[in-house]
Amino acid sequence: MRATFMYGAGDVRVENVPDPRLSEPTDAIVRTVLSCICGSDLHPYHNLPPSAQGRPMGHEFLGVVEETGPEVSGFAAGDLVVVPFAFQDNTCEFCREGVQTSCRHGGFFPADDSGGGQAEAVRVPQATGTLVKLPVDADSALLPSLLTLADVYGTGHHAAVRAGVSSRTSVTVIGDGAVGLLAVMAARRLGAERIILMGRHKDRTDLGREFGATDVVAERGEEGIALVRDLTGGDGTHAVLECVGLLPAYEQALGVVRAGGVISRVGVPQYDEAPIGFPSLFGRNLTLTGGPAPARNYIDELMPGILDGSVEPGRVFDLTVDLDHVPDGYRAMDLREALKVLVRP
């Protein structure tokens, strides 16, 4: 099969590798129908050290079950499924508490060195607890939106849930990438009436307005903080959803959050020096939360809105490539020529 590997910063290759095989009785093999490039994939694209052994890429995919191990139940060859970016048994105490990303028997895709989601097929560990059947055909126009359940929509939703967003909550979303835009969608779905989107790419923030943003602030740093404060009578917002992962975004979150409010981080942090002391969190009674989204925990809640057409998170995909042109997709996202790239093997 063909699969995507990264050999260093900016060095993405699509190679021929052996087809994945069952290695545990709880495994399944899923033939990929759709996958995509994640904003978090750009972090190694910028800074991965050169290596003779490439890193398999891709953790968001849906496809058709080809084969199951003897201990897999509830799934059979031919089932169309979506696969959360973390695999889990969905039965341990952490899974039952809704923190599937901490499953005692789980992990994150790519599950091994054979290939990730940006490939023609994937080995899925803990298939019974990980796979979710899709009640549509493999040629459904809803597939791009259903693919977002693997990560990006669930991650935006997780940001809003962890921040306690409701109809009584004012919200600032930092970042106009796909996660930020879907955090806007999630905050609106949870009832927020005031949603300020901080982003500087007009085509993206225009989509954010369609998803529910009431205000857009293009400025960054102290200027952006001042504008959000002006919009909120000087106080800031109850919730700040930080969807970037860089230190300036966190510092911006500290500047726009209301006293007693919550900062929810779901952008993969690329820093270790975030201020958390008296001048930042402690003195204003702020809460810091977030983390990798337990996407499996949210799929049953979020899927009905996609199926009935009330939300269309797949609109974040604005470029489609075939597997051979995945390196072009990375370049397009890195150059901000694409918001999020859909991959059709």
Rank of each mutant, 00 (worst) to 15 (best):
V179T: 13
R194N: 13
A192R: 09
L181R: 06
V184P: 02
G199C: 09
D203E: 12
G177R: 09
G177N: 09
G177S: 09
M198T: 11
S166F: 01
S170F: 10
V171Y: 00
L190P: 15
A187L: 01
L197Y: 02
V171D: 03
K202I: 02
D203F: 12
R168W: 02
S170E: 14
T169M: 00
K202E: 14
T172Y: 04
R204C: 08
R194L: 14
L190V: 13
G199W: 09
G177I: 10
E193K: 13
V173Q: 03
A183F: 13
M185G: 01
D176F: 10
A183G: 14
A178Q: 07
I195C: 03
T169D: 00
L197A: 08
G199K: 04
R204P: 12
R189S: 11
T172W: 05
G175M: 02
R168Y: 02
L197E: 06
G164I: 03
A178W: 03
S170T: 15
R194H: 15
S170P: 15
R168H: 11
V179G: 04
T169L: 00
A187P: 01
A178C: 05
G180W: 12
G164M: 07
G164Q: 05
M185L: 15
R194D: 13
V179A: 03
E193H: 10
G175V: 04
R204W: 06
L182P: 14
S170G: 15
A186E: 08
L197H: 06
G180L: 10
L181Q: 05
H201G: 04
T205C: 14
T169Q: 01
L181M: 06
G175Q: 05
S170Y: 03
V173W: 00
H201K: 08
A187Y: 00
G164A: 06
L182S: 13
S167D: 03
T205D: 13
R188W: 01
V179S: 07
L197T: 09
V179P: 15
E193N: 10
I196V: 15
T205N: 11
S166Q: 04
G180N: 08
A183V: 10
A183Y: 11
D203N: 08
V171H: 03
R188P: 06
L190H: 05
A192P: 13
R194A: 13
G177E: 09
L190C: 12
I195G: 03
I195F: 02
R189K: 12
G164C: 04
E193F: 07
A163P: 08
A178H: 09
R200T: 13
A187T: 00
R188E: 14
R188S: 15
G180A: 08
S170N: 13
H201L: 11
D176Y: 11
T169I: 01
T172N: 13
R194E: 15
R194W: 11
I195R: 00
D176I: 06
T205M: 07
I195E: 02
A178V: 08
D203T: 11
A192N: 10
A178T: 10
H201Y: 07
M185F: 06
A192E: 06
V184E: 04
T172Q: 12
E193R: 14
S166D: 11
R200D: 15
R188C: 14
I174M: 07
T205F: 05
R200K: 15
V179W: 03
T205W: 11
G164R: 06
A187M: 00
L181C: 05
G199N: 06
D176A: 08
V179N: 10
V165N: 00
G191E: 05
R200F: 12
A163Q: 00
